[in-house]
């Protein structure tokens, strides 16, 4: 462990952290803009050009709001809830390969906070801890609506995590590795996994919607029935943390979708760029390619939100247990047969 290595990693971690925060911030702006455009409106356009300073104004507003806490015996848990939600949302970004390596100051710098070989398992573990933020917050609020939201979030997370894991197994049978960097590297060129595993992608996409509590699976916080669900009792920046965590989660899950199925940082002609233009330019372009893919997925999340209404609770469970899980198991079997026949 030399000091240069520590500095390099610190810089990468700082940049990834800042990137996640900024993306979460501007996702709130983008959400409002996309919502407005899909409804023939123009959206926020007063603060800064095209409303670009709106997230800062919103953040300032949340910071200056009154800090209210309900009459609950669990004051400590009430604070722990949003903290868990926020930290798990930010922890996932550690294993995502944002690009191939850069060659700077005579060193190869990996554009990834850490390249662990079981990255995918790590992501699953951290994401499932994320539901504790919602559950603890809802429980500590001492409010029946919050508790109902928390219970819904927990059961939804449990149901969809199974289907998500099973859909991943089919993909892992093909890739043979859990490291996200290797999975990205395998998809060089246009060798994207989505062409080989469309069903797995579809299941994963649906489960990602459910895991991030986005419409049509936003039963945990449905405003119309549960008045905000688990964050009904929250105000000020604790509320802000919950909302922020949702957008950070959305960004991270978009990144995972892009890395697993849409080739990560690969783009057509990347090999040619590396040989003829230079490693650094080619890999910065690779980062941009990944970024564009992520933005595309974030836009898709918002697009779906303003198209499909919320599921009823029994429909949600029906879809999770009776449709997605059998489909995922079938997909595993078909993948296994194909692997046996063609390899």
């Amino acid at each position: 462990m030399d000091s240069a290595f520590i500095i390099e990693k610190s810089v990468v971690i700082l940049v990834v952290f800042a990137l996640t925060m900024i993306m979460a911030m501007y996702s709130t702006w983008a959400e409002r803009k996309v919502a407005a455009f899909l409804q023939d409106r123009v959206g926020p356009n007063r603060a800064g050009w095209g409303g670009l300073l709106q997230p800062l104004a919103d953040g300032l507003k949340l910071f200056s709001k009154e800090e209210f806490s309900p009459n609950t015996p669990n004051k400590f848990l009430f604070v722990v809830g949003p903290a868990i939600a926020m930290s798990t949302a930010l922890m996932t970004s550690a294993v995502i390969p944002w690009g191939d390596k850069l060659h700077l100051f005579g060193r190869d710098i990996l554009l990834q906070a850490t390249d662990i070989d079981n990255a995918l398992l790590y992501i699953f573990a951290v994401v499932s801890v994320g539901v504790y933020g919602i559950m603890i917050g809802g429980w500590a609020s001492n409010n029946k609506f919050s508790l109902m939201g928390a219970v819904r979030a927990a059961s939804q997370m449990v149901s969809y995590e199974v289907a998500m894991g099973l859909s991943m197994i089919a993909l892992l049978m093909m890739t043979g590795t859990l490291s996200l960097r290797e999975i990205s590297a395998q998809q060089a060129g246009m060798n994207w996994n989505v062409f080989y595993q469309p069903v797995s992608f579809l299941i994963f996409l649906i489960c990602a919607f459910a895991e991030t509590n986005r419409t049509p699976f936003d039963l945990a916080e449905c405003e119309s029935e549960l008045i905000g669900g688990y964050h009904t009792e929250y105000s000020s920046m604790k509320m802000g943390f919950y909302l922020f965590a949702e957008y950070a989660n959305m960004f991270i899950s978009s990144a995972i979708l892009a890395v697993l199925f849409f080739g990560g940082y690969n783009y057509p002609g990347m090999q040619w760029m590396v040989e003829n233009v230079g490693v650094n330019t080619a890999n910065i372009l690779g980062f941009l390619a990944l970024f564009i893919k992520i933005c595309g997925f974030i836009f898709f999340y918002m697009w779906v939100r303003w198209t499909i209404p919320r599921f009823r609770y029994d429909q949600l469970m029906h879809l999770g247990w009776k449709v997605l899980i059998p489909l995922a198991i079938l997909n595993i079997m078909v993948t296994g047969i194909c692997l046996l026949l063609f390899k």
Partner: peptide, 18 residues
């Protein structure tokens, strides 16, 4: 769902009434 998505994306490019 795809049909619905196509309807909403049409509105995305439509002239705004604001």
């Amino acid at each position: 769902i795809v049909k619905g998505l196509l309807i909403t994306i049409k509105h995305f490019f439509r002239k705004k009434v604001t």
